[in-house]
Simulated scan of single mutants.
Amino acid sequence: MEAMLPKNIQAGLDAARLDSMRKSSHLHVEADGAQHKVLRFWDTGFSLESATAPQLRGRVDLYDGAAHLCQCLIVAVAQEGDEMLFDFKRATRVAKTAALDFERARDAPAGLIGTDAPH
């Protein structure tokens, strides 16, 4: 059996839930120079607040605080209540180091010491 709440109480509960999600998340997406707080995140997508999120589509950057996590190609899927849901078409993790253009041997030395080093 489903309990029916008055509209003002339901609206207050929904606002409190949205505020709680907004405060608990460190993730945000950046698109066209604007930042949008991520409310929920899962393996195949994320959600933003529908009132403040534009109809994002295309490439966005996903951050955890200041750490750049990945570049994503996204598409808006649906709106559920106060949330706009987005799915990843592609999510490429950002590398911490530059890509190598050769294969590094497992037993390769970490560095070389020159002959003119002080003794």
Score class of each variant (00 low, 15 high):
residue 9 I to Q: 14
residue 10 Q to A: 15
residue 11 A to D: 15
residue 11 A to V: 07
residue 12 G to Q: 05
residue 12 G to E: 05
residue 13 L to M: 15
residue 16 A to R: 00
residue 16 A to S: 09
residue 16 A to F: 09
residue 17 R to P: 08
residue 17 R to H: 15
residue 18 L to F: 05
residue 18 L to Y: 00
residue 18 L to K: 11
residue 20 S to F: 05
residue 22 R to H: 06
residue 23 K to D: 09
residue 25 S to N: 10
residue 26 H to M: 08
residue 26 H to W: 07
residue 27 L to W: 00
residue 27 L to G: 04
residue 29 V to P: 03
residue 29 V to E: 06
residue 31 A to C: 12
residue 31 A to I: 11
residue 32 D to A: 10
residue 34 A to Q: 14
residue 36 H to V: 02
residue 38 V to M: 05
residue 39 L to N: 10
residue 40 R to V: 10
residue 40 R to W: 10
residue 40 R to E: 01
residue 40 R to Y: 00
residue 40 R to H: 00
residue 41 F to I: 06
residue 41 F to P: 08
residue 41 F to G: 10
residue 42 W to A: 05
residue 42 W to E: 05
residue 42 W to Y: 11
residue 43 D to V: 07
residue 44 T to G: 08
residue 45 G to R: 01
residue 48 L to Y: 05
residue 49 E to H: 00
residue 50 S to E: 13
residue 50 S to A: 15
residue 51 A to Q: 06
residue 52 T to V: 13
residue 53 A to I: 11
residue 53 A to L: 01
residue 53 A to Q: 12
residue 54 P to F: 03
residue 55 Q to F: 13
residue 58 G to A: 12
residue 58 G to T: 06
residue 59 R to T: 13
residue 61 D to G: 02
residue 61 D to N: 12
residue 63 Y to P: 01
residue 63 Y to N: 06
residue 65 G to R: 10
residue 66 A to H: 12
residue 66 A to G: 06
residue 67 A to Y: 08
residue 67 A to R: 12
residue 69 L to Q: 14
residue 72 C to T: 00
residue 73 L to T: 12
residue 74 I to C: 05
residue 75 V to M: 09
residue 75 V to A: 14
residue 76 A to D: 08
residue 77 V to C: 01
residue 78 A to F: 08
residue 80 E to T: 07
residue 82 D to T: 12
residue 83 E to T: 02
residue 83 E to V: 04
residue 83 E to S: 03
residue 84 M to P: 09
residue 86 F to M: 03
residue 87 D to K: 06
residue 87 D to S: 12
residue 88 F to Q: 08
residue 90 R to H: 10
residue 91 A to T: 12
residue 92 T to S: 07
residue 96 K to T: 14
residue 96 K to D: 14
residue 97 T to R: 04
residue 97 T to P: 05
residue 97 T to F: 01
residue 100 L to D: 04
residue 101 D to I: 11
residue 101 D to V: 02
residue 103 E to H: 15
residue 103 E to Q: 15
residue 103 E to V: 15
residue 106 R to D: 14
residue 108 A to R: 08
residue 109 P to W: 07
residue 110 A to C: 00
residue 111 G to K: 00
residue 111 G to W: 14
residue 114 G to Y: 10
